[in-house]
Amino acid sequence: MRRPAAAAGLLVGTLLLAACGGGSGDPAASVPAPPSAAPVTITVFAAASLTGTFTRLGEQFEARTPGVRVTFSFAGSSDLASQVLAGAPADVFASADQANMAKVAELTAGRPVDFATNVLEIATPPGNPARITSLADLARPGLDVVVCAPQVPCGAAASTVEAAAGVDLRPVSEESSVTDVLGKVTSGEADAGLVYATDVAGAGDAVTGVTFPESAGAVNTYPVAALSGSAHPGAAAAFRDFVTSPEGRATLAAAGFGAPGS
């Protein structure tokens, strides 16, 4: 009776060891590679609204900076700021607002640089079947309007433009992320949603965008900073500079972002 138990114990022990071995990474990673050939990998934490644009910027950056690879972690700015504060291995942080960049002010290498702006836009199903032409139209009875909750940046912006325009929206849902708002519009559940101009641009034919002048009252400014904890400060600074370069600006503009200070 003892032998099977011992054999099972050995098996479990081996499996555990194997699992632990796998967890510590491949052996090659611990061997210092020769400096010239070593591809440096930097990790960029970027706001979810930058997903498409930064992926493109990363490819452009890698193409013109041999030996540097860029990996991304895209999430809500407040999540990313929390992770940076908790010691996450990030080299660059790009936030969708100033507030979350301010949270990590102690951890940036150099001052954060504003690189883009974003404004709200009305997203409607393709062809704008409800014929919405202004922010005030969203208050029409019978329209199912979805916005972000005031706790998240896009919702704070929505509250600001509502107040500025003197419009009182009665949304059927206050989502916790702008992608959820867009999803409710693209799935046809909502008649309209307040999202960012870049979301409308990124959604292509899935939605029709309606701009409104009051959006100028709530402009989101995106700052980017290299982080002082980076193991590759040179590469991190280079990526930050690339984002704010004319080439970076052009890519951002193509995605619907505005230029800061304009």
Binding site: S78, A149, Q151, V152, P171, S173, E174, E175, S176, K184
Partner: peptide, 22 residues
């Protein structure tokens, strides 16, 4: 269901939202 206070925002959704600011 979406997320609206008192209508569709249940406790887990409220926690997820509060986490953003509070």
């Amino acid at each position: 269901a979406g997320s609206l206070q008192g209508v569709t925002r249940t406790l887990p959704l409220e926690i997820y939202l509060q986490r953003e600011t509070d």
